[in-house]
Write a protein that binds this DNA or RNA. Structure first.
Length: 682
DNA sequence: TGGTACGTTC
C-alpha cells in the first residue's frame, strides 16, 4: 500500500466486507492520509481502531505535528499508552520547527535526558537539537552537543555530520564547518557533501562550491544542483544560474519545485519575461503553482518585467494568504509608480508583517512622495506602537528627509536610532550621512563617516558627493585618492561625484583627467550623466568648441539630457546658431516636456532675441504642454512649507506676505544706504 | 510502518 488510492480501496473493502484491517495497515493508512493533508480522516481512523500499538500513536502524533497542530499533538503524546524514542523525537522536531515553542523544546529535551533508563537519545534527537541551537544562536550548546555526539558515536551518521556542518556554518564559523567535513576523509557521503556545498554558498565561496561540485559530478543529486542554481541566483550570477539549470536537465537529473523556485530568482533578476512564461507553463502543468514559493516567485518575475496584469492574474490564484506574493505585488506597483494601487492592496490586508510595511515605505520614497512616507510612519506607530522600527523603514524615512533637506526630522530619526539602541549597519550609516549632507550639515555627515569602522564604497561616494556639492573640491579629490589607497574600486557614482566637483569649480583639465581615468584605469563605461556633466563643464568655461568635439565622441544616441546640457552651454556662450540646432534635436526627443520650452525661451530672451522667444512660446502653447512650476520650500514647525511664484494657498499666506514685504523693504533700504555710503556725494 | 539536507519578499 503505497498510494492514497490503494489505501482508500483497502478501507472501502474493509467496510463493504465487514473486516477489520490489521493494525499495520491502519497505521500505514494514517500516514497516507496525513501526507495528503487529510488530518481529519487520519484522526477518525485512529479513533475507530479497536487495537493500537506504539506505531499507531507515533503515526497520529506525526500527523498532527505535520499539520502544525502542536497542542493536539502534545495531548495525544501525553495520552499515548506506548511511547518510544520516535514519539519523543516527533514531538521535539514539532517544537523546534514551529515558531515560539523553543522553551517547550528545551523542556522536553531535559525530560528525555532524565529518562535515560527508558529511552536512549539517538542521532535524530541530536540533529533536531542542533537545529534548535541554530535557531537560538546558542553556539556553546552546539559544541556540547557535538562532544556528546562524538562520545556516544552518534557523529558517524551522514545526517548527523550534515547537521553539524550546517550548525557551524550558520552560527559559528565556516572554518569549523570545513573541519567537520575534512574529518570525513575519503568517506564523504552525499548528505554531508550537500551540506558542505550549501555552507560554501552561504559563505559566498562560490568558487569553492563549484570546485567541490565539479570534482565528482557523478555524486551530484537534485539537491546538489539546486543548491548551486540558487547560490548563483542569489549572488548576482543570474546567467550562470540559468546555465546550470539547463545543464542539470542535460545531465538527466529531474527538475523539481526547489529547482524552479531558485530559477525564478534568476529569471526575475534578468527580467526575462520569455523564460518566466515558460516556467509559468511548466508549473501550471505540474500543479506546482499552488506551492507558495513558486507562485510568489512568478509574481516577482512578472512584476520585475513591469507586467502587472500577469502578476495580478497569478496573485488571484493564491489560495492562502502569502506574504511573499503580497510584498512582490506592492514592490511591482511601486516600481511602476502606481502607489495608489500599492496602497489599495496594502489597505485590503487584515494582517501586515514588517516587510510588507517596509515595501510600502520604500515605494513611496522611490516615487519621491515624502509626505506619504511621514504619514505612513505615523500610521505605523499607531498600528504597532510597541514595535521598534525596522532598520529599512528608518532608511526610507531618512531618504525622505534627505529629499526634503529636512534636517530637523532627520536629527529626530538619528536620535531615535541611538535611543532604541538600533545596530548601525552600513545601510543606516550611509542613509544618515546622505541625509546630513543633503540637508546642509556636512560636518555631521563627516562625523559619522569618521566613526564607521568598515567603510564601503557607498560611504565614500556619499562623502565625495557631499564635498563636491558643498564646494570642497580638494577634499573631494583627496578622499577619492584615500579610497583608492584602501583598495576600494570606484563605480559610476564615484565618478559622477568627482565630475560634478569639477563642474562646480570649472576645472576642465582635472575633469578631463577623471573622465579618461574612468575607462582607461577602471574599465567603467561613462553613462549619459557623465557625458552631460562634461558638456556642462565645457559650457561653463566658455569652451563650446570643445563641447562640440566632445559630443562627437559620445557613442550612444544623444538623449534629451545631453542636448539639454548642450543647450545650456549655448546659452552661457551666446551661441544662438548652435542653440537652434540643439532645439530641433531636443524637441524631437522631448517635445512633451514643458521645461525644455521654458529653457529655450529663456535662452533667446537672455540674448534679446524676442522674436525667437515668442516663436518658442507659441510652439509651447500649440503643443498644449505645461511646465511644472518650480518651487522652494522650508521646514518649519514639523512640516514642509512649499512656495511657488504668486501662490496664496498657504494657511498663513497673509502673515507670510506681510513679513516678506517688510523684509524686502528693509533690504532695499539697506542696499540704498550702502550705495549712498560708498558713492561720492552727488 | 516512524523522524533531519536544497527554495522567496523590503
Amino acid at each position: 500500500m503505497r498510494t492514497l488510492r490503494e489505501g482508500l480501496i483497502l478501507q472501502a473493502k474493509a467496510i463493504k466486507y465487514g473486516f477489520t484491517p490489521t493494525v499495520f495497515s491502519s497505521n500505514q493508512l494514517i500516514h497516507l492520509y496525513s501526507s495528503n493533508g487529510l488530518l481529519k480522516e487520519a484522526q477518525r481512523l485512529f479513533d475507530e481502531m479497536p487495537e493500537r500499538n506504539a506505531f499507531s500513536w507515533n503515526a497520529i502524533v506525526s500527523a498532527h505535528v505535520k499539520a502544525r497542530n502542536l497542542t493536539q499533538a502534545r495531548a495525544l503524546f501525553e495520552a499515548a499508552t506506548q511511547r518510544d524514542i520516535v514519539t519523543y523525537n516527533l514531538m521535539l522536531s514539532g517544537y523546534v520547527s514551529a515558531e515560539g515553542y523553543e522553551t517547550d523544546a528545551v523542556e522536553l529535551f531535559r525530560q528525555m535526558q532524565s529518562m535515560s533508563d527508558v529511552i536512549k537519545l539517538d542521532e535524530f534527537t541530536l540533529t533536531t537539537m542542533l537545529n534548535l541551537v541554530v535557531k537560538l544562536s546558542s553556539v556553546s550548546c552546539g559544541r556540547q552537543l557535538h562532544s556528546y555526539m562524538v562520545k556516544t558515536g552518534n557523529d558517524l551518521n551522514g545526517f548527523a555530520r550534515s547537521s553539524l556542518i550546517d550548525m557551524y556554518s550558520k552560527r559559528e564559523s565556516f572554518g569549523e564547518a570545513l573541519k567537520v567535513f575534512g574529518q570525513l576523509g575519503g568517506r564523504v557521503d552525499l548528505v554531508s557533501r550537500n551540506a558542505m556545498l550549501a555552507a560554501c554558498c552561504r559563505e559566498g565561496e562560490l568558487g569553492m562550491a563549484s570546485d567541490l561540485f565539479w570534482r565528482e559530478t557523478e555524486l551530484n543529486d537534485a539537491v546538489s544542483w539546486n543548491t548551486l542554481i540558487s547560490a548563483f541566483a542569489q549572488n548576482g550570477f543570474a546567467e550562470e544560474s540559468v546555465k546550470m539549470f539547463v545543464e542539470m536537465g542535460k545531465n538527466g537529473i529531474r527538475w523539481n519545485e526547489h529547482t524552479f523556485a531558485s530559477l525564478l530568482g534568476a529569471c526575475s533578476a534578468l527580467k526575462d519575461l520569455k523564460l518566466g512564461k515558460e516556467i509559468h507553463c511548466w508549473v501550471v502543468k505540474n500543479g506546482s503553482i499552488l506551492n507558495p514559493f513558486i507562485s510568489s516567485g512568478i509574481i516577482d518575475v512578472y512584476s520585475k518585467c513591469g507586467n502587472m496584469k500577469y502578476a495580478e492574474s497569478v496573485y488571484a490564484t493564491d489560495e492562502v494568504v502569502n506574504s511573499f506574493s503580497i510584498t512582490n505585488m506592492i514592490v511591482g506597483y511601486s516600481s511602476q509608480g502606481n502607489m495608489s494601487e500599492a496602497r489599495r492592496l496594502f489597505d485590503s490586508l487584515t494582517e501586515k508583517n514588517s516587510i510588507i510595511w517596509t515595501a510600502l515605505f520604500c515605494g513611496y520614497l522611490k516615487s519621491q512622495q515624502c509626505e506619504a512616507v511621514f504619514e505612513l510612519l505615523n500610521e505605523y506607530r499607531k498600528w504597532e506602537p510597541s514595535n521598534v522600527l525596522d532598520p529599512l523603514i528608518i532608511v526610507s524615512v531618512l531618504g525622505a528627509c534627505a529629499l526634503q533637506a529636512g534636517l530637523e526630522p532627520g536629527k529626530q530619526t538619528h536620535a531615535y536610532i541611538l535611543r532604541r539602541g538600533i545596530v548601525m549597519d552600513e545601510k543606516l550609516t550611509s542613509a544618515l550621512m546622505d541625509m546630513y549632507s543633503k540637508s546642509g550639515s556636512l560636518g555631521h555627515a563627516e562625523k559619522i563617516f569618521d566613526e564607521v569602522i568598515k567603510r564601503d564604497l557607498v560611504h565614500y561616494n556619499i562623502m565625495i558627493a557631499g564635498y563636491a556639492h558643498h564646494g570642497h573640491r580638494d577634499r573631494a579629490f583627496q578622499l577619492y585618492h584615500k579610497m583608492l589607497d584602501k583598495s576600494l574600486r570606484p563605480d559610476t557614482v564615484t565618478f559622477l561625484a568627482l565630475l560634478s566637483a569639477c563642474r562646480h569649480c570649472g576645472l576642465v583639465e582635472v575633469g578631463e583627467k577623471y573622465f579618461r581615468s574612468m575607462t582607461e584605469d577602471h574599465n567603467i563605461l561613462p553613462e549619459i550623466d557623465h557625458y552631460s556633466c562634461m558638456i556642462d563643464l565645457y559650457g561653463r568655461t566658455n569652451q563650446l568648441e570643445k563641447a562640440v568635439d566632445f559630443m562627437k565622441t559620445i557613442p550612444t544616441d544623444f538623449d534629451a539630457v545631453i542636448w539639454g546640457a548642450f543647450l545650456n552651454a549655448c546659452k552661457l556662450n551666446g551661441k544662438l546658431q548652435l542653440a537652434r540646432e540643439a532645439e530641433k534635436r531636443l524637441l524631437a526627443i522631448e517635445g512633451e516636456n514643458g521645461s525644455r520650452y521654458v529653457q529655450l525661451a529663456n535662452l533667446y530672451a537672455e540674448h534679446g532675441d524676442w522674436a525667437e522667444m515668442e516663436r518658442i512660446r507659441r510652439k509651447m502653447r500649440g503643443k498644449e504642454v505645461k511646465k511644472l512650476a518650480g518651487c522652494s520650500w522650508v521646514y518649519v514647525e514639523n512640516a514642509v512649507n512649499v512656495f511657488t511664484s504668486g501662490d496664496t494657498s498657504h494657511g498663513k499666506a497673509e502673515a507670510i506676505y506681510s513679513t516678506l514685504g517688510f523684509l524686502t523693504g528693509e533690504l532695499s533700504e539697506m542696499a540704498d544706504r550702502r550705495i549712498r555710503e560708498s558713492s561720492p556725494t552727488l
